[in-house]
Write a protein that binds this DNA or RNA. Sequence first.
DNA 1: GTGGTCTAGACCACT
DNA 2: GTGGTCTAGACCACA
Lengths: 139, 139, 139, 139
Amino acid sequence: MSKSITLNMQITTGDPRPIFKQIVDEIRIQIARGELPVGAKLPSVRGLALQLMVNANTVAKAYNELNNQGLVESRQGLGLFIAPQRQRLSDAEQQQKLQQALATFVNEVAYLDYSKQEVVAAVSDALHRLETAATSNGE
Amino acid sequence: MSKSITLNMQITTGDPRPIFKQIVDEIRIQIARGELPVGAKLPSVRGLALQLMVNANTVAKAYNELNNQGLVESRQGLGLFIAPQRQRLSDAEQQQKLQQALATFVNEVAYLDYSKQEVVAAVSDALHRLETAATSNGE
Amino acid sequence: MSKSITLNMQITTGDPRPIFKQIVDEIRIQIARGELPVGAKLPSVRGLALQLMVNANTVAKAYNELNNQGLVESRQGLGLFIAPQRQRLSDAEQQQKLQQALATFVNEVAYLDYSKQEVVAAVSDALHRLETAATSNGE
Amino acid sequence: MSKSITLNMQITTGDPRPIFKQIVDEIRIQIARGELPVGAKLPSVRGLALQLMVNANTVAKAYNELNNQGLVESRQGLGLFIAPQRQRLSDAEQQQKLQQALATFVNEVAYLDYSKQEVVAAVSDALHRLETAATSNGE
DNA sequence: GTGGTCTAGACCACT
DNA sequence: GTGGTCTAGACCACA
C-alpha cells in the first residue's frame, strides 16, 4: 500500500474563486513546481474533505476536473495518482490561456492610477514570491 | 439639452466577465484615457441597452456600479454624467484592487509553461497595447 | 426572448452508462446530426430535469461536460446555447477516441461465437439505423 | 499433480476496464483462440495475483466470473480448469451481448467525424488483427 | 477503503 | 428565470 501525500494548502473564504477551483489551482501549481512527483497518490476525497473542512463532493469535483485535464489519473478502488507528463496542454492552448488571463488582468488594472512600470513591477514581484514559496514551505 | 455621447464599444459573448462588468470596465477605461470628458452625458439606460442589444436591467446595473464608485453622477431627470476627478479611489482601495487582480492573474498563469520573464514581458506588452489603443481609435 | 428547443430523448435505466453520460451522448449525437443548429437554446437545467424525471444536478453535470468540450456555451442568466463549430476535436484525439471505442468493443465481442463477417455486418447495420433515425423522428 | 499453465498477459493501467474485467476478457479470448486447451489448469488465485501484481481479491473475482459463465470449472481442492465446450452461452444471450456491445460502441463513435464506411473498415481491421494475433504469439 | 453517481435542497450572481 | 456552487447523505462498483 502506497501512502498518500499530504497536501499543505488551505481554502481562502475571501477568494473570488469557488472552492473546487482553489483546490484545482493549488494542486496544478504544486505539480508544476514538481512538489508532487509523478505516481504520487493524492489524499482520498474524504480525507482531503476533512482536512479542508469542505464537503466531499466539492473535493470530488476538483479531482474530477484534474482528471479531465489529464494531470491525474484514477485507478479504480485505489485512488488518484499524479499522471505522467505527456504534453498536457498544446502550445496554442497555453498561448490562449495566457492571453485570456492577461486580458482579464489588464481590464481590472487599466483604470487604476498606476503607471505601466508599477504594474509590471508588481507582477514580477508576485511571480517571484510564488516561486520562492515552493522552497520555503516545501521542506 | 446636452446630447449624449455615443459609446464606442461592444459586448463579447465569449468573455468570461458578465455583461454588466464588461460595460463598467469599458467605460472606466475610456474615462481613464480621457476619451470621456468630465461632464459628458452618458447614453440613457434604454438607449445603450438597444445599442448593445442587452437587457436594460443589465445596463442599469452597470450604471449603478459606476455611480457607487463615484465615476459618474446622476442629475435628477437629466441623466448620468461623467463626474469630476477628485480622488475616486483611496490609495488603500487601489492597492487592494491591484493585489486582488494580481492574485487571480498569477493563479491562472502559474502552472503554464512560461518563464517569469515571458509572463512579465507579455504583461508589459498588453499594457503598452492598451495605452496606444487610446490614441489610435480615440478619434 | 428565444424559446428553447425541445429535446426528444429519454433515459434508459438498463443502460450501463450513467444518466448524465446518456444526456451528454444524446445531445452530442443530435448536434453531430445537425438537428440542433448553432445558436439554438437548450432546455433549462430544471426544465430538462423535470422532463427526464431526473435530479437537476444530474442535468447540470451533463451540461457542464458539454460546456467543457466546447460543444455548448453558457450565457450568464440566459441559458446554454449550441456553440459555433470551430475544431471541436483534433484529428489525433478523434483517432484516439475511435481506437479506444474499438478496443472496448472488440474485447466485448471477441469470445462470442460470431464470425468476423457477422460482426462487421451488425456494426454496419447499427450505424445505418442511427443515421436514418435522424430523418424519421427529426421531422 | 498437474502443473498450471502460465498465463501470458498483463494489466494495463490506462485501460478503462476494471482490472478484474481485463483478466476475464483475456482468458476468455485465449480460450476462444484455443490457446488454453480444455482441462488445462489455471494458475492459483495467489499465483496470478503475484504475477500481475494485483490484489488477490481481484483475481478471485475474475475467476468467479469465469466460473459463473461456465468457461472454467473448479475441482475441489485442486484448482480451476478450462471447462469442456458444451454450449457456453445461449443464442439469445449471445445476441444480447452483441447488441449491448454494439450500442455502447455506436454511442461512443456516432459524434465523431468518421463516415460509416471508415468506421466499418476500422472494425474489420481490428477483428482481423485480433485473429492473426492468435497465430503469431500463440506459440 | 477507494472514486463515481445520484438525490434533495439551499444560496448566489446574472439577466 | 438562468446556470453555478455547495452541503448532506445515500448507494454502487472496485480493490
